[in-house]
Computed example of a mutant assay.
Amino acid sequence: MTRVLIFGTGFAGQGHAEAFRGAGAEVVGAVGRTPSVVDEVARNLDIPYSGTDWQEALETCRPDIVSIATPGGAHYEPIKQAIAFGCHVFCDKPMTAEGDTAAELYELARRKGVKTAYAASFRYAPSILHAKRLVAEDAIGAPTEVECISHFNLEREIPFGWSHRKEEGGGRLNNNFTHTLSIVTSVLGDRILSIAGEVRDDLGRAPIVEGVHNFATRRDFIPQNLDDPSLEWGESNVEWSYTVMARLESRFADTPVSVLFKHGGLVPRFHEDHVVFYGTKGAIYVKGHYGSGHLYLHENKTWRELPLPGDIAAAVPDVRGETEQCWHHLAREFVRDIRGEAVEPYPTFREGSQYQRIIDLIRRNDSWTDVTGLA
């Protein structure tokens, strides 16, 4: 049986463990930063080995696959060690905190001949798989443009942590744009021609609170009294909003497809978040910031909701949570590929390193042209 070692004990680490079990693999160990936390997680998930030393865990557990489920700033060294050990690597996004290190790891994995998976995995949301099929079947004609719009209205008081720091893998580009870019390229094609964008840090600071170990429960630690003079604050240095424009080459169109990615992490939504694919004959609208809601097709000047095809519905992993379902889907494909079975292309370190370098470019905020002299 395929053996998997998990690095990370929070929401992603526990989710990855269940995903690989769902794919028929054996989870042989878990590694975390805090001994008491990793021991408890391993006990609760019935994982036989737990520890805090990654190299020791590699040598003791002898995994076929390592699953990297820590914040992005902690990915580089463990992945480098795992590649040297000959392990296949499943890594959550972002791949690393910067493009150069991501590109280095991609090249190391390629030279070593290990397989990699990059979990920008909402491309496996059922309605996105449906949209992909419809585009391939010419339901909207030649694609012309796409828009991915989301407004999260996140609490400004969420305790300070990795999500507030660029060097730790934080920022909305790393943790939102990676998914939407993967969604668009999975439907239209992965040849990205050009990119332009702007980012904005409209948060500033966040309260420092002890005891936050799980990203999914961080809201439970928001201080009740934000005016407490003894409360300490950490400074954000990363974007909470972004606007990105891209041009993609698609085998379904003779000219490049225009794409708009608009995300406001701290602002409220009025209409539904959505992903829309426009074409010369029609359009596909999918509700939800990652396209996890209902799908509507526009044809003959009318929108109509389409049911999910039976085969796509039947293949949805039987687990709660959209994030978990997508992890299960990708883990299933990854394990099957490692076992030599035929699978559809899935995101790898090739995409992970490309996305990280694109994020570096967007964060420069230098896409503007000064027009003040044209007045």
Rank of each mutant, 00 (worst) to 15 (best):
H130F: 11
G73T: 07
T280F: 06
R33L: 09
V37W: 05
F85E: 11
A30L: 08
E299Y: 05
F85I: 10
L330F: 03
K166L: 12
V286T: 15
V199G: 02
V286Q: 07
D370Y: 04
K112P: 01
R3Y: 10
V89M: 02
G197M: 10
H329R: 14
A117C: 05
D202G: 04
Y296W: 13
T116V: 08
V286Y: 05
R123K: 10
I195R: 05
S150G: 12
A117R: 01
Q81F: 01
R364D: 01
F85L: 11
A206Q: 04
I128L: 09
S67R: 04
H328A: 15
D53M: 11
W368G: 13
K115P: 00
H151M: 14
V335I: 13
T185C: 07
N174A: 15
G72V: 04
D53G: 09
G161F: 04
Y285M: 02
F11K: 04
D254I: 03
F277C: 00
E322W: 04
Y296N: 14
E232A: 15
E77T: 13
V28A: 01
P159T: 09
R320M: 09
N300G: 08
L193Y: 10
G22R: 05
I183Q: 02
V199R: 00
P229R: 12
E98L: 07
D92V: 09
A342N: 08
G310A: 11
R133A: 09
I222G: 01
V114W: 03
E239F: 01
K93I: 11
H329S: 15
I222A: 03
H213C: 10
Y124G: 02
D46F: 11
R133T: 12
Y296R: 15
W240Y: 14
R43A: 12
Q14F: 03
H16G: 05
A314T: 06
G10C: 10
L134E: 00
A17Q: 00
H289A: 06
L203K: 07
S292M: 07
G321P: 01
K281Y: 07
A97F: 08
G113P: 09
G171I: 01
Q55M: 08
G8A: 07
F221D: 03
A19S: 14
F152W: 14
L374K: 13
D360Q: 15
S367Q: 08
I192G: 00
F221H: 11
V371Q: 09
Y278Q: 14
D318C: 07
C87L: 09
T101L: 09
F252N: 12
V275F: 01
S194K: 13
R350E: 11
E324H: 12
C87E: 02
S67D: 05
E145W: 12
R133H: 11
V371H: 13
R332V: 00
E168D: 14
Q81T: 06
Y49V: 03
G171H: 00
W327C: 05
F334T: 05
T2S: 11
F85R: 10
R332W: 05
P94D: 12
R191V: 06
V184F: 13
Y106A: 08
R218H: 07
F90D: 04
F261A: 01
G282I: 01
E26L: 02
R43H: 14
D337R: 12
L188D: 02
C326S: 13
